[in-house]
């Protein structure tokens, strides 16, 4: 499958364009002029030490309140999304798999999935998915990920283990089928078997029409989700860009080289 992807890219159409992005939280600048372009169909990985701005980047990409973009811009598939609301970005086809998915008691996972799918369809001017088609889709996708009916009927992420929460994030990813997905430390808290299952789910979505940004601290995840490009983020800017081999290098030598560039304080 992999051979068919990535390699086949004909156009160099940029799905995501981040230009000189400066973003602050509580008056403290975390992203300090970050620029990044991800062509259609490619998987890019961002690696970096703690406090380099990795999670901030994921939140800024998905439109979380509380992050102030002081300059620069983000565009997705030709749309300037810099100031868009989270739901508008989702409707365009952007997705964030959270590092720490919240627990929402009283909202069952299955109802949440159905509401999300139909909200996206409505925003795109499409017809709502009927109950039968939804169940068909849900059954196929949950089987692949080992998500049980019991999990689907429980409150969203309530009482889920770390691994179950991450599988639930990937379930949402495969159900909502975005065109661009940010995976924020999806490997954290996963044992090796769960990591394989989760990676398989993500890989099944790889296509020439879809791009990914995989944020991770460790190289391990990239053994399973092979990136086309690896970037090193430190001190709020991209410090280095290379091929998949860059991840192995980082695993060997650590981030020391980049951390010396990192100025005061750690911000996730």
């Amino acid at each position: 499958m992999r051979a068919q992807l990535g390699r086949k890219k004909e156009s160099n159409y940029k799905m995501i364009k981040i230009k000189d992005l400066h973003a602050s939280i509580d008056g403290k600048e975390v992203l300090k002029g970050l620029s990044l372009e991800i062509p259609k169909g490619e998987v890019h990985a961002i690696m970096g030490p703690n406090g380099s701005g990795k999670s901030t980047l994921s939140y800024v990409l998905s439109g979380k309140e509380g992050y102030e973009i002081t300059s620069g811009s983000i565009s997705f598939d030709g749309h300037d999304v810099t100031n868009m609301m989270p739901e508008e970005r989702a409707a365009l086809g952007m997705f964030l798999a959270f590092q720490y998915p919240v627990e929402i008691p009283g909202v069952t996972t299955i109802n949440f999935l159905r509401t999300a799918i139909n909200s996206l369809r409505k925003a795109r001017g499409e017809e709502e998915m009927d109950a039968i088609s939804f169940l068909k889709l849900q059954k196929a996708r949950t089987a692949e990920l080992g998500v049980t009916m019991d999990m689907l009927k429980r409150g969203l992420n309530v009482g889920f283990s770390g691994g179950e929460k991450k599988r639930n994030e990937v379930l949402q990813l495969v159900m909502l089928e975005p065109r661009f997905a940010v995976l924020d430390e999806t490997d954290s808290g996963l044992d090796i078997d769960a990591l394989k299952v989760v990676s398989k789910g993500i890989n099944s979505l790889r296509s020439a029409e879809r791009s990914f940004l995989v944020i991770t601290h460790y190289q391990r995840l990239l053994d399973y989700i092979k990136p086309d490009v690896v970037h090193v983020l430190a001190d709020g800017v991209i410090q280095k860009t290379g091929g998949a081999e860059l991840a192995l290098e980082l695993e060997k030598h650590g981030y020391a080289e980049f951390e010396k560039n990192q100025s005061n304080g750690a911000v996730a």
């Binding site: 989270p86 739901e87 989702a90 909202v107 509401t115 909200s119």
Partner: peptide
């Protein structure tokens, strides 16, 4: 934010959370 990031509009997300 979690609900909105999945495409559920703010008003509806608030209703869902209130009901929950």
């Amino acid at each position: 934010f979690y609900l909105r990031s999945r495409g559920i509009p703010e008003i509806e997300a608030k209703q869902i959370l209130t009901k929950a």
